[in-house]
């Protein structure tokens, strides 16, 4: 697959098979196209004028997501995303988590309650927050906010969860909590995570893809990549020769 922003090619010759119900990490130096690749998967790049896939296909659940009969809202409902900077709405905690269900037409209070509780439990927030679901989400700490965003993303029960450097703005303790969370999430979701931090990739991911200048240099089980890289470039990157 090729991907262009206007005339400049951001991704080239990408071919990647993301394994089901595993954590896949995308690593690489800044500007290598990790985030662009991630954003291709739920078509968040559609909004950027001139951005388009120029060659090849992105297939999720076997379906080319650029087909005319793909409904963008359905796609995004099933491919959730968590951003680098936590971005809860200025609403209550409950409303934040329920937002995704509500926009997809769910009005039944009982269903919503249940989904909110499940999502919060999954993101390990339930015990901390169950007594103050009505409080403003903006009053939470940074780590809690990010986990709330994860809860919001998984409340609609997506199949795939995209995470764009979810820990880069957090302190080490919060980061630890979210990393723990990720391995649990992999039991139910296919998780793709972009990260800057190689240790994090080692800790949380089952598979790792190394990107450089818009190309996939190497892809394989995390252990193999880190202990026994096949490519010289990967080795250099891992050894910190460039970043």
């Amino acid at each position: 697959m090729d991907f262009c922003y206007g005339a400049s090619r951001a991704l080239e010759d990408i071919s990647l098979d993301v394994p089901y119900h595993r954590v896949t990490a995308l690593i690489g130096p800044s500007g290598c196209g990790k985030s662009t690749l991630l954003r291709c998967i739920n078509r968040m790049n559609d909004r950027v004028p001139g951005a388009r896939v120029t060659r090849g296909q992105v297939r999720v659940k076997g379906k080319n997501i650029h087909d005319a009969d793909v409904d963008l809202t359905q796609l995004r409902k099933q491919v959730g995303m968590v951003f680098q900077k936590s971005n809860p709405f200025a609403k209550s905690i409950y409303d934040n988590v329920a937002y995704g269900l509500r926009i997809h037409g769910e009005k039944n209070k009982a269903v919503l309650d249940e989904a909110v509780e499940r999502a919060l439990r999954h993101s390990a927030l339930w015990d901390e927050l169950k007594d103050r679901l009505g409080a403003s989400a903006l009053a939470l700490s940074g780590g809690q906010q990010q986990r709330l965003c994860i809860a919001r993303a998984i409340a609609t029960l997506p199949d795939v969860l995209l995470m764009d450097e979810p820990c880069s703005a957090l302190d080490p303790i919060s980061t630890l909590k979210i990393e723990e969370l990720m391995s649990q999430l992999a039991r139910e979701f296919t998780v793709i995570i972009v990260t800057h931090n190689m240790q994090q990739a080692v800790r949380v991911s089952d598979f790792t893809a190394f990107l450089h200048l818009g190309k996939i240099i190497e892809f394989g089980p995390t252990e193999d990549i880190f202990t026994n890289p096949r490519e010289k470039l990967t080795e250099d990157y891992l050894r910190g020769i460039f970043s």
């Binding site: 993301v18 089901y20 999720v60 659940k61 076997g62 379906k63 087909d67």
Partner: peptide, 19 residues
């Protein structure tokens, strides 16, 4: 990138009303 040979459209929208 992610493939399963399943040809039904999982992202079909029931969205004529919404549209």
């Amino acid at each position: 990138m992610k493939s399963k040979t399943d040809h039904a459209n999982p992202f079909a929208g029931d969205s004529t009303g919404i549209q």
